[in-house]
Amino acid sequence: MTLGPELADVVLQNGATLENFTDSGAAALAVGLAALAAGYAERGIGAAAVGAIAEDDDMFVPGLIMTVLPETLVILALVVVFVV
């Protein structure tokens, strides 16, 4: 599969190629975007979790688990790395 150069072609439209944008580059971009999304999702959850822990120490473990749940996004995105 050589999706990377084709993708770059589509983006650039006029046929100018982006030689360095390979498959692994695209995969890296996918993982990066997924990590960014996970970070954004964790922002709100983390804030809420810290709030809950501040009120009640027993919430530490549930709070921690809830906070890292969006990490699954990154793990799933990581599959792409092994596929290419």
């Binding site: 709100g44 804030a47 809420a48 810290v50 709030g51 809950a52 009120e55 009640d56």
Partner: peptide, 14 residues
């Protein structure tokens, strides 16, 4: 604004 944090604390107090 930080509604998530405030909400978590408020709901616990509620």
């Amino acid at each position: 604004s930080n509604p998530e944090y405030v909400n978590a604390r408020v709901r616990s107090r509620r």
